[in-house]
Design a protein around this nucleic acid. Structure first.
Lengths: 348, 348
DNA sequence: TTGAAAGCGCTAACAA
DNA sequence: TTGTTAGCGCTTTCAA
């Protein structure tokens, strides 16, 4: 069923059918009703490709989940508690605004071409990029598209330095620095002085911020910084597990651990337990992200909550506003975090 | 940059550019190279809409996550441990085969129109429908499209009864009946005789199968079936929590509980604990789905594992085969489950 | 208020 | 082997 069929059946021209479909004002109510009746009867749906080719938008946004591993993993699946809520929230929000979401994973530098491709092939009107290890070259490529794109978790300073802030770009972050500072401060206030940190990837903005806050806060409170207490977890469960094991087996005895994400905190708990150390009696631990599991663990994990749903909502609203030209300027938002105090920390 | 520009720059016609882009055999190597050079130089990407309009496929599959709640929830987010791995695996597999995934959530009967719409608007070549409470009317509508669609978790018998099995349709299930039977048998073999069950939605195929296996297995092993031991959880955490609380407070003391999914099993563990009952010392418990958290709980949850990744892979491969007309017949597969024995069950 | 007609960028049948 | 040409189904300008 094409618009021409509808036109014939309703006794009007294709132009009029098009005007009705697109809610043009210059169609008398009676004509509109007459046409609508046929449209509904045959449940006509206009061909998106034809519309797009004729100059309309796709009503689709791209969602690119970037997870570039240093080492090739044979398993492409992103078993990661961090991304799923983003995907959920972004799809939900976009759908409720009448947009479709085209989703694509990015595991390698080459995969990243898909972002440009999807836009140039006119599959999407704009997109949201979430994840780790996007670098300035990639961002430059995206900015060069002069298309609506949102980056979640990226260093704004780097954008500005590269003069990329004149584009149709938007950055959405959380206040990782403040969140991490609050977490470390909480441990210090509890009387801890031997505080280790399991770091995330330092080539991600949030990874760097969380680590920097740890260093700065120790310093600000007059505590010594110990190189040995920096465990390089890279946001990965198995790395964190190994690092904690190694630390404990070396004889070190931190009384508290601040982890750059919950996945690693959980792995750390397991490692500690295997080494005969109890949480929180022997070691206090704080995670980051506040994934749903955190509150279900035993002991329930104290963690820094990120407002993922609000961030996703903001991202979708902004990208759509940009697609519809209601907003065109460079744009950046920073969401506050919240320390969720549970049972995994104890006063010394 | 359009194919015409490439043609001009390469000194050929648009047809030749098209032939090169589509890997037609009747292009001499030299011409191909000449054209490719220009294509690569300008990083030309053909407009998908134009291709589709000219008769090509979209190279996009739809993924519809159905989660129709009886009561309207103000929060549209599907905080559900069951769907995320499907989304991950389906996107991964499709992407690795060069397909894009258009994802849409379905929360109401009206939302379901999006499936038909996406196909009729020619946004997708085919689709995968995963989730609860698709009914035969919906399936009939999908089948009427005569398009490649995969249903995950649907009663094949119902399809056959309605003569829908002559369509370009495919059903992918797990052997829920066998899995549930194995779980209940495990409890009986451990000496339990007072076995309650937290049921899922009985308007889902898997929900019905898991319940039926529970009833049949008790019967086959000569154990009495008690109406009071059927807790109507509807796959929902809070329902399961309330039902378990109610049962325990009524004075009943089952020694084991079989839950139709892990989310509910976890909620049940919490409820039991609050009532002063220990798992597994006072009550043994088995879940279903084997979500990643299951192995991280204390005690680690015994659960029935579903091969979600394999199912997703199969779904994607089948839908793409159908899109490319490599497969057209009705098709159905049933994947085996596996009981993962951990620490939440104890001999009586 | 409405219709005719051009054009969006591509593919493919046909002709050369 | 290559080019010409006729669509694909829609929107939109222009004219009536």
């Amino acid at each position: 069923m094409r618009s021409e069929d509808i036109a014939r059946l309703a006794g009007v021209s294709r132009s009029t059918v098009s005007r009705v479909m697109n809610n043009y004002p210059n169609v008398p109510e009676e004509t509109r009703r007459k046409v609508m009746k046929v449209i509904e009867k045959y449940r006509y749906e206009p061909n998106t490709s034809a519309r797009v080719l004729a100059g309309k938008g796709t009503n689709t946004i791209g969602l690119f989940v970037v997870s570039i591993a240093d080492h090739q993993s044979s398993n492409r699946i992103y078993q990661n508690n961090y991304f799923a809520p983003f995907v959920d929230a972004i799809v939900d929000t976009a759908n409720s605004l009448g947009y479709y979401v085209l989703i694509h994973t990015v595991y390698t530098q080459e995969d990243f071409a898909k972002v440009r491709q999807a836009f140039l092939q006119r599959r999407i009107d704009g997109g949201i990029i979430v994840g780790t290890q996007t670098n300035i070259a990639m961002v430059q490529e995206i900015a060069g598209l002069h298309a609506p794109f949102i980056l979640i978790d990226y260093d704004v300073a780097e954008i500005v330095e590269n003069r990329l802030n004149q584009n149709c770009l938007s950055i959405i972050n959380t206040d990782d620095y403040e969140g991490a500072k609050e977490a470390v401060t909480h441990l210090i206030d509890l009387g801890h002085r031997e505080i280790a940190m399991i770091t995330g990837r330092t080539n991600t903005y949030s990874g760097r911020q969380r680590y920097q806050a740890y260093v700065d806060t120790l310093h600000a409170r007059g505590l010594p910084f110990k190189e040995a207490y920096v465990l390089h977890g890279e946001f990965l469960k198995h790395k964190a597990y190994e690092e904690v094991k190694r630390l404990i087996q070396s004889g070190a005895r931190p009384t508290a651990i601040f982890s750059a994400n919950d996945d690693m905190a959980i792995a750390a708990m397991k490692a500690l337990q295997e080494e005969g150390l109890q949480v929180p009696d022997d070691v206090s631990i704080i995670g980051f992200d506040d994934v749903p599991v955190a509150a279900q663990l035993a002991p329930r994990l104290t963690s820094v909550r990120l407002p993922l749903y609000e961030m996703s909502k903001e991202a979708v609203h902004t990208v759509i506003a940009m697609c519809e030209r209601r907003q065109i300027a460079f744009h950046t938002v920073r969401f506050p975090t919240k320390l969720m105090i549970r049972d995994s920390c104890k006063p010394l």
